[in-house]
Write a protein that binds this DNA or RNA. Structure first.
Lengths: 194, 194
DNA sequence: ACCAACATGTTAGTTACTAACATCAAAGGG
DNA sequence: CCCTTTGATGTTAGTAACTAACATGTTGGT
């Protein structure tokens, strides 16, 4: 097939850029690394960089956890309380990611938290995840209407708990294990709020 | 005094810049308004702009709610459960701000939510507020140590509930009243999580 | 062999933001 | 009343992220 060759080449180029970028970011820092330098390192022009990543930040931020989480949440029975659906889905998805890429996840999280420009975009991504959870939890999904306040608050609290766990995990150099921290964070939400 | 004259002049210049900026943002949009144009409108050079606001975003984002919230939280008796301290403090501070600047608050919130660059920075500010709450709630404040996970989760959930309420309020053109929405959001956290 | 599609390069912008130096006005001491 | 110092502002010249327009090559189908 024709498309296959194209797709593979695109994927290779994208990975090359991402790889070079992360290498340079870790070695010299995010701000000190220019897009031109990344492009040079990856053997492309700086325009090619922007064809693959709309902004410099996206090289670090792009991941595809959101679709996975959405599927997992929708897969949980609607008879469960919403917070339980989210907790279980995140626990499930997280262990998959965690066992596979633990070290990479820690390095990337550190870079994200250390770099102001990346932090800002990261928080915005989290609020996008919140909106995604709202839609996934809302069965009466009238395709455009916003979810009721209760579901929005639950989605927000869940994202916040997850974030707090990840931040704490990174600040403590990866101890204790992230899935355990996430469990503890949700336990606080569910039983220790007062 | 000498300082008074200086301080007043600085304050006037700052307000002039902020005022011109908001006017232009509302009229032509954030991205379509250049810093140079704002400076011209305010009758200063573009460098003066950056001496008062480190970035273009800060013209819209700078407010001083955080110190107020911190004081109010610390003022609540430590015998109360943490979430109740935060809820009460926010309710208290909010009604003050709300009754005084309701319209301005709505306009500004709309602008913030409509503009991607501002949204990103806004979410980051909220996470700064979360860290502030963590410190305010932590009595054993060992000046550098991070708060225990329980308090971090509570602080995060509180900020998230407040944010969700504000966003919902702005999306519904200011109905119902913001303080009521905030109350409802915290009620969900405290009694409707399962 | 030729044509269409697509990835890439080149070039020339715009704009946020920084740094170095100049200017000007007011403050305060002699 | 001058003179020095200090703080606010302007000017100029840069850097770097991003955009738009157009050119070039490379691949796949006919």
């Amino acid at each position: 097939m024709a498309q296959d060759w194209r797709a593979r080449k695109r994927a290779r180029t994208k990975e090359a850029i991402q790889h070079s970028a992360l290498r340079l970011f870790l070695e010299h820092g995010y701000d000190a690394t220019t897009v031109a330098r990344i492009a040079e390192e990856a053997g492309v022009s700086h325009m090619t960089f922007f064809r693959y990543f709309p902004t410099k930040e996206d090289v670090v931020l792009s991941d595809d956890y959101d679709p996975m989480i959405e599927e997992l949440v929708r897969a949980r029975p609607t008879s469960e309380p919403p917070i339980e659906r989210v907790r279980a889905a995140i626990a499930q998805g997280l262990t998959a990611v965690y066992t596979a890429d633990q070290d990479a996840l820690l390095t990337r999280t550190r870079l994200l938290l250390e770099t102001p420009a990346l932090r800002a975009r990261l928080w915005e991504n989290l609020h996008a995840t919140q909106r995604l959870l709202e839609r996934a939890l809302d069965d009466t999904d009238a395709t455009g209407a916003t979810a009721p306040l209760r579901l929005r608050v639950i989605a927000g609290a869940s994202v916040s708990a997850l974030t707090t766990a990840v931040v704490t995990w990174a600040e403590n150099d990866g101890h204790p294990e992230l899935p355990q921290l996430v469990d503890e964070a949700f336990a606080v939400l569910e039983h220790q709020l007062h």
